[in-house]
Computed example of a mutant assay.
Amino acid sequence: MTPTPFTLSVPDDAIADLRARLGRTRFPDQAPDAPWTYGADLGYMKALVDDWRDRFDWRAQEAALNAWPQFKVRMPDVDLHYIRAEGKGPSPMPLLLMHGWPGSIFEFIDILPRLTDPARFGGDPSDAFTVIAPSLPGYGLSFTPGQKRFSIEDIAACFASLMVDVLGYERYGAQGGDYGAFTASRLGYAHPRNLIGIHINMITIRRDLPPPPNPTEEEARYFEELAAWTREETAYQAIQGTKPQTLAYGLTDSPAGLAAWIAEKFRTWTDNDGTIESAVSRDHMLADISLYWFTGAIGSSFWPYYARLHAGWPIPTEGQIHVPTGYCAFPKEIIRPPRSLAEATYKNIRRWTPMPKGGHFAAMEQPEALAREIQAFFRPLRNG
């Protein structure tokens, strides 16, 4: 398991093919109600497709990613891609930084310099991290056609081996949102001796448990929000968790279909004013969508949903996580359990911070605020 340097370079003919396909997009009509009522808005999607075809500069995004040292290493069942960004400080702490779905390694372009070189942003160099940011197995640059599909349990085992067996970090921190938060939590449960702590921006407690007999006001609010979200916002989980292969045909063949599937999540899950771009730049979103397109990895990225639906929750029902835990409570996160419920699983919460603004894609939406919270959480743990 010897890492080799990696540089991303999409062939010119693949970019030309994408533009040609975008130029032949066959759009549906739209029901005569308010935009976005039933999913991705037709007017927005026509403008996004035109922008992707005619203005978006993939090479600029590729260069931004290639500015960071990247590697691939042959792990069991996957050629794993990761960034290894060395910290600039007296004793940088190793930090495993993990994205989720429908995110990618592009989520971290703006937060990486803040974590690796805090002094550049007016911070303390003692807070520096050496960041290991992998593409999740089955996602983006950690995908090859026909490879094994990975559950969260598999991803956590793979990353534990990467950090300890490949990179030699006996102790490290882990941070993530979405499936990155699931993976950090699984690492804290299954590999606690190697974890300095975990920091997450989504709480991953089970969502099928009944309310307590006498819920507090905050608990009642959570279950009301959970019921509404389950009713209106989980259709994607049902199809990705039951028929991922069927959905993959449409999204692998149609870039417009892929863009609609992902862009709708950016609009629904970010802290925006009605337009995606008020929370996340269009170029950042298109870089993420483009990586799914060029790698053909959208189908395999569904697999954690299938595994979770058919094999169970990554943390067993009675399982507990005892490693130090920090949490950023962003106001527009898709699921926001109160601390009283989270503490049944996370038994060692050291920091719980309500954030003034931000949503599901926190590293893209609020990189400065998230970086400060990660630094603050790990600061007292560095010498422990």
Rank of each mutant, 00 (worst) to 15 (best):
P145G: 10
I83F: 14
A14Q: 15
Y82W: 07
Q240A: 05
Y179R: 15
L195G: 02
P3G: 04
F121I: 06
D271I: 05
E170Y: 04
M75G: 04
Y305M: 09
Q237E: 12
T7H: 14
Q30Y: 08
F27S: 00
R19P: 00
R84D: 12
F56W: 06
F71Q: 11
I111E: 14
S104L: 09
T252M: 02
Q375G: 03
D124K: 10
E333I: 05
S254V: 00
W313V: 02
R19V: 00
G241V: 09
T37I: 09
D127I: 05
A344F: 06
P316L: 11
I276C: 01
R53K: 06
L96F: 06
T270D: 11
I289Y: 00
P380C: 02
L96P: 07
T317Q: 15
V166N: 10
D253G: 01
D17S: 10
R149Q: 13
D127N: 09
M1L: 10
M364Y: 11
E365I: 04
Q237T: 13
F143N: 13
N66T: 14
A263H: 11
Q245W: 04
R282T: 01
T144I: 07
M98Y: 04
I109P: 01
F106C: 11
R53M: 00
L187A: 02
I315K: 01
Q320K: 15
